[in-house]
Design a protein around this nucleic acid. Structure first.
Lengths: 166, 166
DNA sequence: CGCACCGAATTAAATTGTTTATTTAAAGTT
DNA sequence: AACTTTAAATAAACAATTTAATTCGGTGCG
């Protein structure tokens, strides 16, 4: 870092060199885009009786049944307590069920129920459709670029856990 | 019924023509990226005593004081009840205050307090810093591309509020 | 003037998400 | 074998977000 200029505050300048300004807009931009996506997905998912955030659990379980809450949390990029509660809700809703692991008493295995299995296709459709709507007008290349950039910034953010130095 | 090609599973194919597959990955990708961003921003904002979601309110108010909750909601892309609640918390925290509009009894004007004003700079720094961290390694052009794509998908999603026609 | 309608704000209820702390079981150490 | 440490799941507390329903002031019509 610091190999170039423009790393300073530049608080006094309201010029046109908005190099830093772009980065400033990044957080709001992605926040709002994600909010729109979540809302759209939520609406589409509602037909299956699911909430945004639950779809990923079912989709992953459909690929590999019997994962533990911790594994699911990692796969979905959320914290373990979030997964625990989401699983609890979904279990109450009848989409999945917990089973104790016979070998390791600490582990909980999560399995799709029949009802859960029945939602898989519809969820896939919702997620896919939402993505298509969002990507309307974008070329295939642009979509891939977007995905790549998204992954990059995610990795950047996660590799910098706590940088509270001034 | 109007859908046609690309609706297949194609789960077995790992080829390069993943046109539909890209769009399918869009929702999860942006969701997780936004989650990372939110977490990072939340951590940085914590020093100011704020939570992610509150920053925008202060920043907008710093530009134009006395906006109504509804206006703030639109500007920030959230629904009115969200804004009401956030404003309530922030008022309790002492960052802003509500004042009734003398002319129109239905309106509430939101004003920054001195404490709120004092946080403006720090918030701007946090948001900017977060964006910079997220954008590390990306060229200026890439960042602008990302911003443009983000805006596009946001508009796409919002112009299609509830079109579940088949 | 009274009643219907609209619009802004709020309340209510549901969920995801985070951090911090607690329980419980496995593993490691002495 | 008893104690300590670690790991997984969970519980509790706090915040954001949404939709649906409610309150309340303004406006319009009869």
């Amino acid at each position: 870092m610091s190999k170039k200029k423009g790393d300073k505050k530049a608080k006094s300048g309201k010029k046109k060199e908005l190099e830093g300004l772009s980065a400033t807009d990044l957080a709001p931009a992605i926040t709002q885009a994600a909010r729109s996506m979540r809302t759209a997905l939520s609406r589409s998912l509602g037909e299956s009786g699911l909430y945004a955030g639950q779809d990923g659990v079912i989709l992953i379980l459909a690929e590999e049944d019997g994962m533990t809450p911790g594994q699911l949390a990692i796969r979905l990029g959320v914290k373990a307590p979030t997964m625990t509660r989401t699983i609890g809700r979904m279990e109450a809703q009848g989409f999945l069920e917990r089973r104790a692991d016979g070998t390791d008493g600490r582990l909980t295995k999560v399995h799709l129920t029949e009802a859960g299995l029945r939602t898989v296709e519809q969820i896939g459709r919702s997620v896919s459709e939402c993505g298509s709507i969002a990507a309307k007008g974008l070329s295939d290349k642009e979509i891939r670029t977007l995905l790549k950039l998204l992954k990059t910034i995610e990795q950047n953010l996660q590799s910098e856990p706590s940088d509270d130095r001034g």
